[in-house]
Nucleic acid binder design. Structure first.
Lengths: 228, 228
DNA sequence: GCAAAAGTGTTTATGTTACACCCATGT
DNA sequence: ACATGGGTGTAACATAAACACTTTTGC
């Protein structure tokens, strides 16, 4: 296996925009940088791609190393390569976005290395490098995607109430949604399965549901579109 | 500006999937490779990213060098980085897709270097590297995109007939479209402007139209969606 | 005058929106 | 018994789908 040494090479990193949902607002995970440049600033989790490593593997590895998160929904977002985006020199970054269920959220100080912290989207400090730009791109993608792919379920516990689901949609879309129409539409699909389990709590118990990926995939193959 | 030399670096390339439309079928531009590896095979136009160069600039530069094409619609597609995708070693490629109007198609042998040739999608020879995979991703993207963004106009001359537009949609979507409903829907938007010019030819002349990007952008800002 | 492509409306079915009250539980 | 969030149906409206014939031109 010959090497391609004829050209100088940019360094290559991965960065992850990790979204979570706490029942009220959409959240993003940031870590405090422990080294220069931008020492002490907040940044997206990420790091250098190894020579023998798939890009997705690199993203998953960095995510686990820096936040303790494993087995999350992960999708490639965009590759950022402005020549001056890193003060250390030419660094191209393949950005990813991840969706994490609340029961998997790392507690504060959960992992050794991590000052990983959840921030409400919109109450986020300025980020290092061009990470504000990356975050913006991830948000746009999420808002677009939620409307025609059932990614919302990746942000909720496996069993959830319809009110939780609706709150999530309202948080992401940034506008209110009619309760009756929302339920009618979703339950018309058979991949949202009502369970015979209910929440406890101070008031009337709410029925729990789960997302049936099998049934959803079956619909997909018949060339079907989700939409809202 | 310090260098980040702590890590071995993958080489970085760009590859472009260039789509065209000849009035009947969707086409893709491929070039015959003049060097190893895959010497003599067909491949997507592309090449190495320079150290001081934006990713998009690199894609545009390679496109012009290898096919003579300039000022085309260009959008980042996906970044491919499987460790074994290039026999020369680790090469990560940022893939782009481009749409080209027929009046700008390079004639055969138009540019010096180029054996650039149009192939009907589906009658394409096997491509070098993982370029078949890249092409597939580009096709999926185009088919998805055409339904909610007016990218079709980037594949037609500036002035076009509604039949041409419909033929294009049918070619990309791979299914027939009802003529009356198609026209009704598109003309309901004001960004498709009928002109007082007509085609010549053997039969009844067809009215030419143009796409008014200004009006379309105005609609976009009012939070409007295109949809088929 | 005929072959070939351009152009045009109406009806029906389907999906979307708007909207207000009763229910079950814990305290 | 009351406060809180859970749950339900219908009518008006808008959008999408199905469908066939007339027009204009070149030959």
């Amino acid at each position: 296996m010959a090497h391609t040494c004829e050209y100088p090479r940019p360094a290559l990193t991965v960065d992850c925009v990790v979204f979570g949902f706490d029942g009220t607002g959409l959240q993003v995970l940031a870590i405090r940088r422990g080294i220069e440049p931008f020492l002490g600033s907040w940044a997206l989790p990420g790091g250098f791609v190894r020579m023998d490593e798939d890009l997705e593997s690199a993203a998953r590895r960095e995510l686990e190393e820096e936040t303790g998160l494993r087995d999350v929904f992960l999708e490639q977002l965009y590759t950022f390569g402005a020549p001056d985006r890193d003060p250390r020199g030419r660094v191209v970054s393949v950005a990813w976005f991840a969706l994490v269920r609340p029961d998997r959220h790392p507690a504060k100080g959960d992992t050794d290395a991590s000052d990983a912290t959840w921030f409400e989207v919109g109450r986020l400090p300025a980020l290092a490098f061009d990470h504000d730009l990356i975050l913006r791109a991830a948000l746009d993608r999420l808002r677009g995607k939620i409307r025609y792919q059932p990614v919302g379920f990746e942000l909720l516990p496996k069993r959830f109430t319809l009110t939780q689901l609706q709150d999530l949609y309202e948080a992401i879309l940034g506008r209110p949604v009619d309760k009756r129409n929302f339920r009618k539409k979703l339950l018309a699909f058979d991949f949202l399965v009502p369970l015979d389990e209910f929440t406890g709590g101070a008031h009337r118990p709410a029925r729990l549901h789960r997302f049936d990926r099998r049934k959803y995939d079956a619909h997909l193959k018949r060339g079907f579109l989700f939409e809202l």
